[in-house]
Write a protein that binds this DNA or RNA. Sequence first.
DNA 1: TTTCAACACGAAAACGTTTGCGTAAGATCA
DNA 2: TGATCTTACGCAAACGTTTTCGTGTTGAAA
Lengths: 346, 346
Amino acid sequence: MKRKVTLKQIAKELDVSVSTVSKALRNSKEISLDTRSKVQAFAKLYNYRPNNIALSLKNKRTKTIGVIIPEIVHHFFSKVISGIEKEANNRGYNVIIGLSNESFDKEVINIEMLANGSIDGFILSVAKETLLLQDYHHFYETINQGMPIVMFDRVVNEIACDKVVVDDKLGSKKAVSKLIESGCKHIALITTKDYVNVGKLRTQGYLQALEEHKVDPKASLIIKVEENKDKEVEIETLEKEISALLDKEKSIDGIFAVNELYAITAMKAAINKGYKIPEDLSIIAFTDGVLSKHAIPSLSTISQHAVEMGAKAATMLIDKLEEIVEEEQYHTEVINTTLIERDTTR
Amino acid sequence: MKRKVTLKQIAKELDVSVSTVSKALRNSKEISLDTRSKVQAFAKLYNYRPNNIALSLKNKRTKTIGVIIPEIVHHFFSKVISGIEKEANNRGYNVIIGLSNESFDKEVINIEMLANGSIDGFILSVAKETLLLQDYHHFYETINQGMPIVMFDRVVNEIACDKVVVDDKLGSKKAVSKLIESGCKHIALITTKDYVNVGKLRTQGYLQALEEHKVDPKASLIIKVEENKDKEVEIETLEKEISALLDKEKSIDGIFAVNELYAITAMKAAINKGYKIPEDLSIIAFTDGVLSKHAIPSLSTISQHAVEMGAKAATMLIDKLEEIVEEEQYHTEVINTTLIERDTTR
DNA sequence: TTTCAACACGAAAACGTTTGCGTAAGATCA
DNA sequence: TGATCTTACGCAAACGTTTTCGTGTTGAAA
């Protein structure tokens, strides 16, 4: 087993100095053509590759960006990652990931681990617990140390950094408007409690759409799901709630849910009750994922263009790192949403 | 904006040498208690953290493991990653990911990028194109340079390295046996072409189960899907094939598919034809993901325990890195599969 | 007073690069 | 022949650590 070959070894072998080897490999005309070709041949033979770590130390940059997300077993986040990875690779950067699992502590630890020289900047989506605690010291510290952060999707407005978000309100409005325009009169909303920012915004979009179409909102048509550590339980509970709602409010002919899973759950409850979809009941979900695409019937959704989001975040971060954009100049990019009509809408 | 503070800066500020600072921070009793506490106080005040890159260069290890997977927008792979990440973090390692997108070239580039000092070892699942080309030079080179590799799921048998695999054959056998035992007489198989190794093995499991239950296999009940770059097209084509099959072979009362998506597609075709599931037709899929869990009706599956797989792979790699296990001693771990009975089986 | 150990600290090397500068040998010119 | 210019290379510093080996100062024992 041959270990990785270094400049020093090549130098020794060829009886020249390390600097000569380095220059020869970089084709400096300071070095004679003769020596250059000799060194290059030798390097090729031994498959020389410069040590990234040494380069990082010297250059004070690692060409690596750190991504911290709440979870990876999640269609949206994995799509964002694939967008980040693609753009980063195109520009010669690596991607290192950390998972917070929605925990404040894990988020802090991950950031601290990576901030000590391992990476040049962060792309992250804030953990729910952090949002709840509203403790953002780790972000401030990181930024203070001169390490840029780009937040996406779940962002903290009060922090001065680049952000990439989806227009949740407008997206929801699109969905609900579509429902109204296709003839739905009584549209239920399945959303989260208000402390989840995106849930809140999507709720606002729903209300706005109703208002614009002169439909009076009814509190009895809104279910605000209490998030549960145990997703199974959360979903089971929700299914019962929806069942009850459908029993109580017979007039419901449209449902807008703030995520795929809630929508699928609603669909399940409705199908069990014998509803025909979309004839008796139309459904639209915010967030487009595999679940929607392959559900039977396939779900109409609002797509957030997650890949594009990731790519945009990477672009913004790298632009800042390479000083294409000035340091203190922050920008919030809004990614458009698109209504994808499938089989749960008319 | 204060930059990161270094030992040198602390040393200057306190008018001592760098070595004194280093020793003081590591609580060496070579340094007087007085100086130690002074230095430590100062370091805490300025939030000193040792630079990882410098440490990596010195220690010749990065405490980072590289993971290369074919795609990340995929339930199985993202679960594996979460398993790797968890175990790695527990043992103080970071995870850096590269995506091959099933491309040989991208796999090679990713490995070369990371192998030059950025990481201590690899965990990877081989790209389909690589499997097809059977060009494994990049793996050999990496291993030759003393960098350990752990392959998971899609492995290359001829390469001497640690491996974590699923017993595909046994898993399929379990599924098909379950179908037979629950009364299915005519079980269709939806699998991939034989050059995809896991497809081949799962097909073998199907055949073995039939044999053991003295059921004669019928070639007309087997669909071998040709993979297509465009998944949409692949799935649409498949749906038509299944429809045709159901028309032709009216006796089919069970379907085993080698992945979720094929199973869902089969279910869709069957539901469209008015089949009652599971009364008229039972379905089991290999691979357990969100799709199966939230399908209506929910799919019975063979779970591969992806998280466990990732964790195991990480354990094996780190054990090797930390020389808990001898270098030249390779081992293949087989992860058990479990039948998860849901609503598509009786 | 001399000798020596203990103490507290600093100098320097090492990890693998890149790069500015110095310089010996040879070439060119007057 | 002597002065100057090129050429082709080596030295050393720098990035931020850790660690080995010195070394000057102190205090105590002889």
